[in-house]
Structure formats: structure tokens, C-alpha cells
Simulated scan of single mutants.
Amino acid sequence: MATEGLAGNVEGLSQFTRALARAGNVGARQEVKDANFRVADKLADSAKAKAAGLSRQQRSAATSLRATKTQNYAAVRLGSARKPYTMGAEFGSLRRTRTGAIARGFQPWRGNQFSGWAGGPGYFLHPTIREKGEQLIAEYRESINRIMAEAFPE
């Protein structure tokens, strides 16, 4: 398993799920899907908890966090049509009003390395990924190893 920034890549996962399909092991395929969802759901819950200590806008935006479930990857989605401000709540804003205040109540920009802020992007989701990512990847690795051992015992 390799981690690349905000993504973790499990080499051979798609081949593994295809082998499970060929073997007709529906239960193990569902376990892989559930393991993906558990990781994404834990991340979303942790990010919501982090946002609980931030501004009202950020707390509201964090309620749009949701985990997605597939066999080959886990993802956390942020934003919705009802909360169009979520990206601004997560990353802040560079835009300023005539008085110099940051536009629409957003926090200062934390969108990328070019802003001069060295702590990394984001206010609640991305900091949670940095804080909890390695732990969640380790849990995921253990789940996949257990599923492999049960599906293809030697």
C-alpha cells in the first residue's frame, strides 16, 4: 500500500476483487466494500468532530461530509446543492471586501502551498486526513489482509 498525499493506493486491489468475483466469493467482495466504507466513514466522522470546534459556517458545511462505498476505493464527499459554501468553509477565501475584511465570513485562505501558510490546506477535512490518515490506512490494511487470508487460505 502506498500513500500519495491525500490518497492511499492499494496495489492489486482491483485484481483481488476480480479474483473474488471469479471465485464467486460474494461475501468477501461485500467485506471489501464494507472495509472501504468503514475507513471513509471514520474519516468523515472525525472531520465533523474537528469542525465542531470551528465557526458556525464550518460546522454547517461539515454536515455535508459523507462516505461513499465502492469495491475499489473509499471516498469522502464534501458539499451539496444546499450548502454551496462548503469549499469556502474548508479552504477559506482570498477575496477581500473594500475594507480589507475577508469576503462572506470565510476564514483566511488555506487552499494550497502558494498562500504562504505552511500547515497544509483546509480547516477540518484535510487536517483530519493528515492527523488520522496513517491510522486509518493501517486499519484498512489489516482488514484487507484478514479478508485475503479468509478468501484464499494457503
Score class of each variant (00 low, 15 high):
T3A: 09
L6T: 07
L6W: 04
G8E: 03
N9M: 02
G12D: 03
S14W: 01
F16Y: 13
F16G: 03
A21G: 12
A21K: 15
A23Y: 09
A28Q: 03
R29Y: 02
R29K: 09
Q30L: 11
E31S: 15
V32Q: 03
K33G: 13
D34I: 00
D34T: 07
A35R: 03
N36P: 01
R38L: 06
R38K: 11
S46R: 15
A47I: 00
K48F: 04
K50F: 01
A51H: 06
A52D: 15
A52R: 11
G53H: 04
G53W: 02
L54I: 13
L54D: 14
R56T: 12
Q57M: 14
Q58C: 06
Q58H: 05
T63W: 01
T63Y: 03
S64K: 05
K69R: 14
T70D: 10
Y73P: 00
L78R: 00
G79N: 12
G79H: 12
A81Q: 14
A81F: 11
R82G: 14
P84T: 14
Y85K: 05
T86M: 12
G88S: 11
F91R: 02
G92A: 09
S93V: 01
S93A: 14
R95Y: 11
R95K: 15
T97P: 01
R98W: 03
R98Y: 03
R98G: 06
T99A: 07
T99W: 02
T99E: 07
G100L: 10
G100V: 15
I102M: 06
G105K: 09
P108V: 05
G111R: 04
N112S: 11
Q113N: 15
S115G: 13
G116A: 12
A118W: 03
G119L: 13
G122L: 04
F124S: 02
L125D: 07
I129V: 14
R130Y: 07
R130T: 05
G133N: 13
G133E: 14
L136C: 06
E139Y: 07
S143H: 06
I144F: 06
I147A: 09
A149C: 00
P153K: 02
E154I: 08
E154C: 01
